[in-house]
């Protein structure tokens, strides 16, 4: 399985861009959460962008990642964005109600 690297996490202005792997499951989730939380400690980060361009598969672990990060930044007025969502990802986001919290673009 292809591994995530630090390159997949970028800070642009006050946005943290996370490029998610091909498959977002419990196996990958630990690393994504840990890296994202480390970078969120950086005071300049206000918003998070999840980039699903490469992602073909996601399960509820992905929902867990997004909800967890949303809780961390929403109290400081931050927003969460999801971009390049495929049809399956959109379905999971709407079944889990996340489309009300996350701006899907």
């Amino acid at each position: 399985m292809e591994q995530l690297t630090r390159e997949d996490f970028k800070i642009i202005d006050n946005y943290l861009m996370i490029r998610l792997p091909k498959e977002v499951d419990h196996y990958n989730a630990g690393y994504i959460c840990e890296q994202a939380d480390r970078l969120l400690m950086d005071e300049s980060v206000q918003n998070i962008v999840f980039d699903f361009a490469d992602t073909g598969f996601m399960d509820s672990s992905g929902v867990g990642i997004i909800i967890g990060r949303y809780k961390k930044i929403s109290c400081f007025g931050g927003k969460v964005f999801a971009i390049h969502c495929s049809r399956q990802i959109l379905r999971i986001l709407s079944v889990s109600g996340l489309h009300k919290l996350v701006e899907i673009m």
């Binding site: 989730a29 630990g30 959460c33 399960d59 509820s60 672990s61 929902v63 867990g64 990642i65 909800i67 967890g68 999971i92 079944v95 889990s96």
Partner: peptide, 15 residues
């Protein structure tokens, strides 16, 4: 504590 969403069974039911 595990960053889980609690959506597992809900997604199984939905899909």
């Amino acid at each position: 504590d595990l960053n889980r969403a609690g959506m597992g069974f809900a997604l199984m039911e939905a899909f």
